[in-house]
Nucleic acid binder design. Structure first.
Lengths: 319, 319
DNA sequence: TACCCGAATAACAACGTTGTTATTTTAAGA
DNA sequence: TCTTAAAATAACAACGTTGTTATTCGGGTA
């Protein structure tokens, strides 16, 4: 069916091993021969067989990304960045949106070179039976795993946010975010606010956004405002939550300081200036890829390390 | 490194070909031997090598999905459904969010069995050089391609919507949707409204949502309402656009009829009852998978056919 | 002219499977 | 006990590559 090295060899009147060498620019083949072979290969639309290559070289130059919850906008940006970073490093990224164990098993069967997991807590833990056999790196909230995890330090971000509000003179803080959830990211943010505000002896309230979407938040804040008013120092748990809350915040209320948590850069077309805190997706992607590739190339066993990335504050004004 | 058939064979004191047969439950091996081998394989954590299998059988039982724009919610639902349908049919789905040509070339090298493309028009057309070598099916708006495309007939949907509004007695229609875009889906919807309303001699206005998001629509409709008012018959181009528009529509205005275009089923927690029109994602997924698998198994060449799926109207009320 | 050396190319083994063919083992019948 | 057929298992070729080893082919030198 498909064109093989042998077909090209027959066509060019050389042996197939010469074709193999020619196509990978080996110095063992004359320039003239190489040129002829390459032309012929192009003409015949030769497509290398990765299965055969992988069989002999034990390399597929493909990385599997396990991404069970394809929704969040922030993480979509991250996926794109990871794809880019991997491409740069000479690897192809194949995503599975299946459940983590199924996905990882298949990646193993396909002899991919490594696995990246968008970790969502317990349900996305890969068993050692799998992780003993392939380099893995996770992205998520710090926890003990048989493979490294990159942690964007949500609590450090929240502390920075609180510190800024204090510095700006706010004595009372409102945190708007998802409170009733199993999403570990949201839990960490919420709990950090609680603990740190107590520690700093600052008043705080937790306002449930009722979900991670703009719509949910808009509705929730509307309800909240029926009986209470918002404080001037506000921390929002995500980009979408910020957008939802902003429906009810007058752009001219310059007393207010709003800090949004997120990993994306563009906070554009917002009426009032806001702060954001988080690790840029690009930086996370780079970290994931760098660590994974290093482990692949060193043929190192997975370790339990936790790799911390520290968020930074940014100020956004409508241009 | 990894455990192979040979390792299991040595361990069990049989030949590797017997192990191969045992593991796939061939009747050529005694039950007792099979049991012993299977236990040993499990114990040794044997993971079949897909590269080797693929090399000899020319099957990888893997389908590549080309999905260059990982964002829209509706299409996320579809991806999940496609994954499910493929799994049901015994195939694994690997997604690439890279550009279509790169993705398809890699799928070819990896010797995947077929390709599904979420078509976005010209930029996502695969060249025959690729499509001559692997079964392909696209999902998008009907157009001539060297491979089949499943078309959800946006224009038929829009016509149904207009017909319903006419039937309900509305003489003037507002269409809220993305007007300035290269997204062919949006263009088709817009143009169908224009042409069909003219044909039916109905007044219509096109209101630009300024994008496909809820936020953009909310803002756009707000602007619009500063100088004009909405008609009672309203068609919204998507789920998110509907949500955006609903911010400005009083839940009690029962004179109004709102029809939302989308392929998802859940239009929940909406204040006022609305209609929706579209082909359910599940049905699209089923169509894609059925056609693709059929072509794979029949080893048929790709054809240029256009496969139409017809949308249906649904009524949604808050429960 | 015969010899040798290096350059160019060819031949071959291996990777881990599957499916076909060959060999061994088992048990039944005489 | 021997023969024979069937059942069980073993051996082998093939899939398309890569990397190593073997062979061939031209010169240049004696």
């Amino acid at each position: 069916m498909a064109v093989t090295l042998k077909d090209i060899a027959t066509e060019c009147g050389v042996s197939y091993s010469t074709v193999s060498k020619a196509l990978k620019d080996s110095p063992l083949v004359t320039e003239a021969t190489k040129r002829k072979i390459k032309e012929k290969a192009e003409e015949m639309n030769y497509i290398p067989n990765n299965s055969a290559r992988s069989l002999v070289s034990n390399k597929s130059h493909t990385i599997g990304l396990i991404w069970p919850a394809v929704d969040r906008v922030a993480i979509t940006t991250l996926a794109t960045q990871v794809n880019e970073a991997l491409k740069q490093a000479g690897y192809f990224m194949a995503v599975s949106i299946d459940n983590p164990i199924t996905a990882a098993s298949k990646f193993l069967e396909l002899r991919f070179d490594g696995v990246i997991v968008f970790d969502e807590g317990e349900a996305t833990t890969l068993p050692e039976k799998i992780t003993n056999n392939i380099p893995v790196i996770a992205y998520g909230v710090a926890r003990k795993l048989p493979y490294p995890i990159i942690n964007v330090h949500h609590n450090w971000a929240m502390k920075q946010a609180v510190d800024l509000l204090i510095e700006k003179g706010h004595q009372s803080i409102d945190y708007i975010g998802e409170l009733h959830t199993k999403d570990i990211r949201q839990i960490v943010k919420k709990e950090t606010i609680e603990n740190y505000c107590r520690e700093k002896q600052i008043n705080y309230r937790l306002i449930d956004s009722g979900g991670l979407t703009e719509t949910a938040t808009k509705q929730a804040v509307k309800e909240f405002l029926k009986t209470e008013t918002l404080h001037d120092g506000i921390i929002c748990g995500s980009y979408d939550i910020t957008m939802g809350a902003l429906h009810h915040i007058d752009g001219l209320e310059s007393r207010k300081t709003i800090i949004a948590y997120d990993n994306i850069k563009q906070f554009k077309s917002i009426e009032m200036p806001i702060y954001s805190v988080g690790v840029p997706a690009e930086q996370i992607a780079e970290g994931l890829v760098k660590h994974l590739i290093r482990n692949i190339e060193a043929e190192r066993k997975n370790t339990s390390e936790i790799i911390d990335l520290y968020p930074s504050l940014q100020y956004h004004e409508k241009k």
